[in-house]
């Protein structure tokens, strides 16, 4: 792929996307639709980061809901207990989450195999237990209420349409970051890594470091999304940050396609909305009750079997999800 061609095509795609986002934001007035759109955006932020990890480092995290929760609780606690500026709290939360990711990723990413998946699984569970048990800080399972709104230029982001115009530009920024990363030195290193780890190492790519970098980045994305969640709902409790949500995030990435930066976005949109549709359907026709959970599992399995590259295929299916195994 020649650089000069990418140079115009990406901005073109992004501009079209930005225009679409703005159009939706200006035309849609119904808070219910905006509410769904905001959750799509928040989920997309996490999924784009996780997509980098799956697509480019060939690793998977089963604990991203934990990082998302760390961001949410950092914002909740720092703003309600210490009266910190919400934006500062968001940054501190992101930094702390990055540090946790570093501590866990550093030793496990040195190893071959799926130790990161196992370690993040354990980490995610511990984080949720702490949310439940550390009452003094987290107020236990009943959660933290009255989280303040975010302010932008003196304007409280207390309506759906204002919040929409915070979340979606951030999604855009995340996409640009992810895209640039893909085309950067680190992105090339990661791509080399995805194709042949041995050859990449021989060519001077610090394999472990590149993987660690992308893992930390994905955790930070998740944390920021979590902070947004906290300020949007103005309430956090431990239940949304469990194993189930971690799995949903992975499903978003796989269904959307991990090899393209657009894939996780598409996956987040599709699954968040599918969730609504299935729930409404189950609600109208009682015999469908409970089947929406089954549908989740079945969709994941069907995608893995029949379209492992996801909805939005990239240059090629990422190593982790490629159908054929090197002999």
């Amino acid at each position: 792929m020649k650089p000069e061609r990418t140079a115009w095509r990406r901005p073109a795609g992004l501009t079209a996307f930005a225009a679409g986002v703005a159009l939706v934001g200006l035309l849609v007035r119904n808070p219910y639709y905006l509410n769904v759109a905001i959750f799509v955006g928040i989920h997309a932020l996490v999924a784009v980061g996780l997509g980098l990890l799956v697509g480019w480092a060939g690793q998977i995290s089963l604990g991203h809901a934990g990082f998302y929760g760390l961001g949410a609780y950092a914002s909740a606690i720092l703003t309600t207990r210490f009266g910190l500026n919400p934006w500062l709290a968001l940054l501190l939360g992101a930094a702390a989450t990055g540090l946790v990711a570093f501590l866990v990723g550093k030793p496990t990413l040195r190893l071959h195999g799926h130790y990161l998946a196992m370690a993040t699984l354990g980490l995610g569970l511990i984080i949720q237990i702490v949310f439940n048990q550390a009452d003094r800080w987290t107020e236990g399972p009943s959660g933290i209420t009255a989280i303040p709104y975010l302010y932008l230029a003196g304007l409280p982001l207390n309506t759906d349409s204002r919040f929409y115009f915070l979340v979606w530009p951030l999604v855009l920024v995340a996409l640009i970051l992810a895209g640039n990363l893909t085309d950067s030195r680190m992105g090339r290193a990661l791509r080399a890594l995805g194709q042949d780890e041995g050859a990449a190492a021989a060519a001077g790519v610090d394999v472990a470091r590149a993987k660690l970098g992308v893992f930390i980045l994905s955790a930070v994305f998740a944390s920021i999304a979590g902070s947004l969640y906290a300020h949007y709902l103005t309430y956090v409790s431990p239940s949304p940050f469990g194993f189930t949500f971690s799995i949903q995030l992975v499903v978003m990435v796989i269904v959307g396609g991990a090899a393209s930066v657009w894939g996780p976005l598409a996956g987040a949109a599709l699954l968040t909305v599918l969730h609504q549709v299935l729930a409404n359907a189950a609600h109208q026709w009682a015999f469908l009750d409970g089947l929406e959970v089954v549908a989740y599992g079945v969709i994941l399995v069907l995608f893995l079997i029949f379209r492992p590259q996801g909805l939005v295929a990239g240059r090629r299916a990422p190593r982790a999800l490629r159908l054929t195994r090197p002999a």
């Binding site: 990418t6 976005l265 599918l274």
Partner: peptide, 26 residues
């Protein structure tokens, strides 16, 4: 070309999404 196709796919997905949202509440 690939990039354009990808953008188109995403836009189609998002549109489909919006349609679904529009369709889902009674």
């Amino acid at each position: 070309d690939l990039q354009v196709r990808r953008v188109v796919t995403v836009v189609v997905c998002l549109l489909a999404t919006l349609l679904l949202v529009a369709g889902c509440p009674k």
